[in-house]
């Protein structure tokens, strides 16, 4: 699985070098780990437009969230997928992504290590960084439809994996809601 997603990454890089009409957007969103555990995500998106109706967005997300008594997550991942617009400005999208997730233990009383001799000392909250493949679907509106610069409002459920964890991988679900606006 790891190698399949590494292939996806290479795939993404290749496609972003294609020439076509494109726009660059920045975005910001609420990121809810299992919906309610709050966080935020910043995104930078290069959207290659192949027609009025379809585009190939390449997106880099930088996000952070806190799941109390579980973990905090800091991630950087890249996505590539398909976005299709309706005349009304409504759009849907799908993308697959790959990135790095750095998790930190979240327990309000901290992390401890107990030595061989029984001495207790504070430990690090940091887990090892994990690979973070993901699949994201999305719905949204282009509020400035048919104008020069786009402003998009969107809702994106994201399913992502944390690999390796507990000898295998664990999976998470998140909902992102935000907007992005065209820089150029």
């Amino acid at each position: 699985m790891k190698y399949a997603y590494m292939t996806a990454l290479l795939f993404s890089c290749l496609l972003t070098h294609l020439s076509a009409q494109s726009n660059l957007k920045a975005g910001v969103a609420y990121f809810g780990h299992t919906l309610t555990h709050p966080g935020g995500v910043l995104e930078l998106e290069l959207e290659r437009e192949f027609s009025e109706r379809a585009s190939l967005p390449f997106r880099i997300d930088l996000g952070y969230y806190r799941h109390a008594r579980n973990h905090d997550g800091l991630f950087l991942d890249a996505h590539i997928g398909l976005r299709q617009y309706a005349r009304s400005g409504f759009f849907w999208e799908e993308s697959i992504g790959i990135g790095i997730l750095q998790t930190m233990l979240n327990g309000e009383d901290g992390v401890f290590e107990v030595g061989e001799d029984g001495t207790v000392r504070r430990g690090s909250v940091f887990n090892q960084p994990d690979l973070m493949p993901s699949v994201t679907l999305g719905l949204g509106w282009d509020l400035t439809h048919r104008q020069d610069r786009k402003t998009l409002l969107w809702l994106r459920p994201k399913l992502y994996w944390q690999y390796p964890q507990k000898l295998v991988s664990v999976y998470h679900v998140a909902v992102q809601a935000g907007f992005s606006w065209q820089l150029r």
Binding site: H67, R69, N70, K166, L167, V168, H172
Partner: peptide
């Protein structure tokens, strides 16, 4: 504190 990770046991 529960998350979907709860449903994954590594002792598989």
């Amino acid at each position: 504190m529960f998350s979907l990770a709860y449903y994954v046991s590594g002792l598989t």
